[in-house]
């Protein structure tokens, strides 16, 4: 009797799994193909250069980049504290930080209104003392996006800070480096790939943000109407325009995925 040989890493597929796996793949792939087929390729340039589309595109790029920048600026220190400091209630803090990951975005928008609305916990003082009104403003869009995007950065960076070889930091300290220099010159570069991945994930999440934005910031063209909101509005007037804008968002998602292929597709970078 001869033994069948196969590469060691290739496991035999249980017969029941294969058809289900194919269905799952089709379920995920067919809508994307449908979008590409339905796309009005001939009128693409006109549809994407209407004032509404251009405004939404500009607003989306500006707000999502700002939101990602805020996520990095505030999220990295938070990740560091969660990864490196022991303090009572750390588990609770981490839980709170990660809530936006699982919270329905609409609820996120409602919580933002409750806190930063004109009669909100913090919002009333912002308005009474400084005349600042965050809801239904472009700043509100950035806030809503940062709220849902930051947890992606925090968990990615915290994980990297926990798994990195901390002895490099020890080495830097014995060489006379103060804690801030150790962080900037040794820790940050060593977690660089995760930091970039976390920032890109946060940016992609901010770019696609819909629920919290429309709840907290509304849907005003030129002020708070980002691309996903424009897609939603366009569906009622021009299906072609909605599809064209969707193709743009799909292209962005695809680009993000390719740029992160090392982590998301399980490849080797």
């Amino acid at each position: 009797m001869s033994l069948r040989t196969r590469p060691v890493h290739q496991q035999r597929t249980p017969r029941v799994l294969l058809p289900l796996a194919l269905i799952a793949f089709a379920f995920l792939a067919i809508p994307l193909i449908g979008l590409l087929i339905a796309a009005p390729w001939g009128q693409m340039s006109e549809l994407l250069t209407t004032p509404t589309a251009l405004e939404a595109l500009r607003l989306s790029i500006v707000t999502s980049l700002l939101a990602a920048a805020i996520a990095v600026l505030l999220g990295v220190p938070l990740a560091w504290v969660l990864a490196r400091r022991e303090f009572p209630g750390r588990t609770l803090v981490r839980g709170l930080v990660l809530i936006p990951l699982v919270l329905p975005p609409v609820v996120g928008g409602v919580t933002l209104l409750a806190a930063f609305g004109r009669r909100g916990l913090v919002g009333q003082y912002l308005y009474d003392w400084f005349g600042i009104q965050l809801p239904f403003s472009t700043a509100g869009v950035v806030m809503a996006e940062a709220f849902v995007a930051m947890p992606f950065l925090v968990i990615t960076v915290e994980g990297a800070l926990r798994t990195m070889d901390r002895r490099f930091e020890d080495a830097a300290r014995t060489l006379g480096a103060r804690p801030s220099r150790v962080f900037l010159r040794v820790t940050a570069p060593l977690i660089g790939p995760s930091l970039i991945a976390g920032a890109v994930l946060a940016w992609a999440r901010a770019l696609g943000e819909f629920g919290a934005t429309i709840t907290f910031a509304g849907n005003f063209p030129g002020v708070t109407q980002t691309l996903p909101l424009a897609v939603y509005s366009a569906l009622e007037v021009s299906r072609d325009e909605a599809i064209a804008l969707s193709v743009v968002l799909l292209a962005v998602s695809f680009t993000v995925l390719v740029s992160l292929r090392g982590r998301m597709l399980g490849g080797r970078g």
């Binding site: 002895r167 014995t174 060489l175 006379g176 480096a177 010159r185 040794v186 060593l190």
Partner: peptide, 28 residues
């Protein structure tokens, strides 16, 4: 440690992988 003026050669050297040899030596 940063104020002790103690030089350490670690077991697997722990050279900073993102720096050149000169940058490693100049780090201190």
């Amino acid at each position: 440690p940063e104020n002790r003026r103690v030089g350490v050669v670690f077991q697997d050297y722990l050279l900073f992988p993102h720096m050149t040899v000169r940058q490693n030596v100049a780090f201190g």
